[in-house]
Design a protein around this nucleic acid. Structure first.
Lengths: 346, 346
DNA sequence: AGCCGACGGGAGAGCGCTCTATCCCCCCGG
DNA sequence: CCGGGGGGATAGAGCGCTCTCCCGTCGGCT
């Protein structure tokens, strides 16, 4: 940029008032004579003034920026970090998170800085980034239950809000879903359809959400008269869904209903079923989880337990905002309720 | 943050030197006595100093941040903006862009700010954001050929690099693919497989890339002895691929090979084909474009013309960096070559 | 021995903004 | 007619950093 950007001083001179007055008009603070306000606004228009954020944040100690961190637990090399980024983005879940966050942030004229933290160095980088005052706080989405980042942030006293309750308690706010209820809802659907032989593809054991979904599903099935439900562990990916369903089908060829702990795995389940000549939903009913975009594009379209990810992400941003502004000091947990979205698969 | 962050001054006092010296050590500029360097580094360690970016960028007039803008041409309402964000993220293409950009930026300790610009206000916001000095420049990925953002940026003299050549010439650097060659490669594959009756699902007419891919495909088919190739226009989405293939199949039921201008549409093509009882690739060979993640997950896995999106995105970031640093002043175009990735569909 | 230049370090002036303290002026009550 | 009060504007002190001067101290060369 060669043309020197106009400053408050320039506008003040143009309007014939002081810097402070212009500042007040710009920030809409305290009483300013309406006539002078117009004068200042005109001057701003004429000079094409845009406040310099660095200068502002230097004195306010606020940046109006938040970091959106996708973190793992790994000790990944530099090259694999790219793959991590690509993998993250191939999961439709994150698109919804971003959409929700942006939905909250945009009306406030702020925008998220995207960071990936899949190695110790990258995690240090996140902490440094925040400590340097590049952003006011962090929205953290962990892909792994052992993610050490939340603890690092809490320890450094940096404002942060997590997606999903951390396994180890940390003094940070988080939003989460009533996963148990999600499992219950899935079970109720399969029960209502009259499925007798039922199996489930769970998420990784280590993930609390997986266990809760599974518990909700099993408890409800048990209450419905089906105390035994075969389980195969998956990894929330398409491939793992395929593998899990293949194993399940080998041992229980007479299965009539399957609950997969996310849509990607449900898609894998459907693929295996079709390849084995089973029709969905006529022979086997399949219920997914998340109600992500694949639920709609999958053939057949998946009946799925909806996780209101956008709302949850927006709530994260709102919580962080409150923490940063000091409106809220103690960590809180905000819980969302799942609901069934019926399509064709069950 | 209640605990006051240590400043240069604090470190200087601790080390018994001047602010300027500490600054020199931190920035590794000019010669500083090694003994003093150690002294300073020790002091930094002890105080836990982290340079304040706002203060630094106030004087350097550089932020070390770039905006990653996904823009459209629309005049979209606030609510639909969210949908836009979600839609963008459901396209695997953008995940690769982000991965490539992050891959270049991360080693430089910078991180992209994510922005969506699908309305006039949002575009103004992008310009304002950059003018305010929140970011040094913008990486722009347009989803629409009529996107006015590049012109706005060029007009404002803001550094920016585009993905794909803009339809209306703009004084900005861009990276692009040799689309014509991509079309040629697809044609050569179908020709080599001995397909006689061939059709193609193109991208939107208005998009230059669509036309070039189509031209490359047609020219090569013509040279191979097939002057007439039926075309159906798609919109780069799964649904549009389904619609286009349905139409194509109605008029040309004897088709033996299909080239779809991206993988998402190729997936739609495969779905239609399967529903109509055609086997892929035995009855009909399908070639996609992009080699995106759906190419691998699609059933059957897609043979696709690879677009090295990660490399292209990294090149964008590199170009922007050069422009920002003043190493490069005139706009340039960097062209990448596509290559065929053979899987099962053709 | 004297001079010059290179080198290492310090002092201090801002960068553009916010915000507190202050001042001015007008209005009102006594 | 004067003192007090308050709204409305200004002056000025920084926020933490970089960077341009400037100064002192050597080492090497004539």
């Amino acid at each position: 940029m060669n043309r020197q950007a106009p400053t408050l001083e320039d506008v003040a001179r143009e309007a014939g008032v002081s810097r402070a007055t212009v500042s007040r008009v710009v920030n809409g603070v305290r009483n300013v004579d309406p006539a002078i306000q117009d004068l200042v606004r005109l001057a701003i228009e004429r000079t094409g003034y845009a406040p310099n954020r660095a200068a502002r944040s230097l004195v306010t100690r606020r940046t109006g920026t938040v970091a959106l961190v996708v973190s793992g637990a790994g000790d990944t090399s530099e090259e694999e970090q790219n793959a991590f980024a690509a993998r993250v983005f191939s999961d439709p879940f994150f698109g919804r998170v971003v959409g929700g966050v942006v939905g909250f942030l945009r009306p406030r004229s702020t925008h998220p800085v995207l960071m990936f933290a899949e190695s110790p160095e990258a995690r240090e980088e996140v902490v440094r980034y925040l400590r340097q005052g590049n952003a006011d706080g962090a929205l953290v989405v962990s892909t792994h239950p052992d993610d050490p980042l939340p603890a690092l942030l809490a320890e450094a006293g940096l404002p942060a809000v997590l997606f999903a309750r951390p396994v180890r308690p940390v003094a940070l706010s988080h939003v989460d879903l009533a996963h148990w209820d999600g499992g219950r809802i899935a079970a109720e659907r399969l029960l209502a359809r009259g499925c007798r032989k039922v199996a489930t593809v769970s998420g990784p054991w280590a993930v609390a959400a997986s266990q809760e979904r599974l518990a909700g599903f099993r408890d409800t099935m048990a209450r419905g008269g089906h105390p035994y439900v075969p389980v195969a562990e998956g990894g929330f990916t398409l491939d793992s869904g395929v593998a899990a369903m293949t194993a399940l089908l080998a041992e229980h060829p007479d299965v009539e209903g399957v609950f997969a702990a996310n849509d990607l795995m449900a898609q894998g389940v459907c693929q295996v079923l079709r390849e084995r000549g089973r029709r969905v939903p006529d022979d086997v009913a399949v219920v997914g989880f998340d109600d992500s975009s694949v639920a709609a594009t999958c053939r057949p379209p998946l009946t799925s337990v909806r996780q209101p990810v956008e709302d949850m992400a927006a709530a994260m941003a709102r919580l962080l905002d409150e923490h940063v502004r000091g409106l809220r000091t103690d960590p809180v947990a905000v819980l969302f309720e799942p609901e069934l979205v019926v399509r064709e698969s069950a």
